[in-house]
């Protein structure tokens, strides 16, 4: 009796917790509303299954608890019932998988008008590189990294002239413009993670990975590292500032002038 009651409490308690607890995802700031929708679908389906299974168990525990003179029903199997359950499960699984795969295709297909930017991780700070007026990033290689070239940019590449490098600071992005973030790492695995963007991806030394997104909300967001990268992992923080186009432009110009000022004394190779 008590066991059945506690099982019911576990099922209902979980649902109530889900509905009333203050802990829920952060308001989204990118175009990945689809991901949130897929999660909601999954919550509905899995939640229904969980409650159904636990309540059914509770019922069985109560109704078929041992009593004097009682004997269990003998029934080795019931093929029809088992096949039905299998098919229903298959349908439920397909209902979660299909939207998931569609959204995934979207997730990995970068729109043509996306601007390339670079996000660069190293123990334990973030750096960023914006393409400047030409809209293109220069090539790079970890072997070119040096104190005056912290991102290992290929200076022989003409596209490198106007690239804007932001070390350890904030990344600003304009609202409403799709961005393709190219992800690189100098040393170990990192993961560019802004909870409000939903999208995240590991940065792997020796290769370039990517994500794309369109910021949809202005504001300042925490950039975290989501892949264990050594003892400084939790301290590896940055800021993502999403601004209106004109504020962004003003910021970018400031960065460009600062960048040139810093680059000017160094000898040109």
């Amino acid at each position: 009796m008590a066991v059945a009651l506690i099982l019911v409490l576990v099922a209902l308690g979980s649902v109530i917790f889900h509905l009333v607890s203050p802990w829920w995802w952060t308001p989204i700031a990118s175009n990945w509303q689809y991901i949130d929708n897929t999660i909601i679908i999954t919550f509905w389906i899995t939640g229904a299954v969980f409650v159904a299974v636990v309540l059914f168990m509770a019922y069985c525990v109560y109704r078929f608890r041992h009593q004097a003179g009682q004997q269990a029903h003998y029934e080795p199997e019931n093929k029809r019932l088992e096949w039905w359950l299998t098919i229903v499960t298959g349908v439920g699984v397909a209902a979660m998988l299909t939207p998931g795969l569609f959204v995934w295709r979207e997730f990995i297909t970068v729109p043509d008008d996306a601007t390339d930017i670079e996000i660069f991780g190293q123990q334990w700070q973030w750096s960023f590189r914006l393409p400047g007026p030409d809209g293109k990033l220069a090539t790079s290689d970890a072997r070119l990294i040096s104190p005056d070239n912290p991102l290992g940019i290929n200076k022989d590449d003409p596209k490198s002239k106007d690239d804007v490098v932001i070390e350890g600071g904030e990344l600003h992005l304009p609202i409403g413009k799709p961005v393709k973030a190219l992800l690189r790492s100098a040393d170990v695995l990192h993961d560019f993670y802004v909870p409000e963007l939903r999208a995240k991806m590991d940065m792997v030394p020796g290769q370039v990975s990517y994500i794309w997104f369109t910021p949809t909300r202005t504001g300042t967001f925490d950039v975290l590292c989501a892949e264990l990268c050594g003892v400084g992992h939790p301290q590896m923080r940055g800021k993502l500032v999403i601004q209106e186009q004109k504020d962004y432009q003003a910021w970018l110009e400031r960065q460009t002038s600062q960048g040139f000022a810093r680059l000017a004394p160094s000898p040109v190779e």
Binding site: T38, I39, P195
Partner: peptide
């Protein structure tokens, strides 16, 4: 059941490493 979240590739993206 929470495994169904993480196995479903795009749902995993925001949840992975959390």
């Amino acid at each position: 059941l929470t495994g169904l979240f993480l196995g479903n590739v795009v749902v995993d993206v925001p949840l992975s490493d959390t």
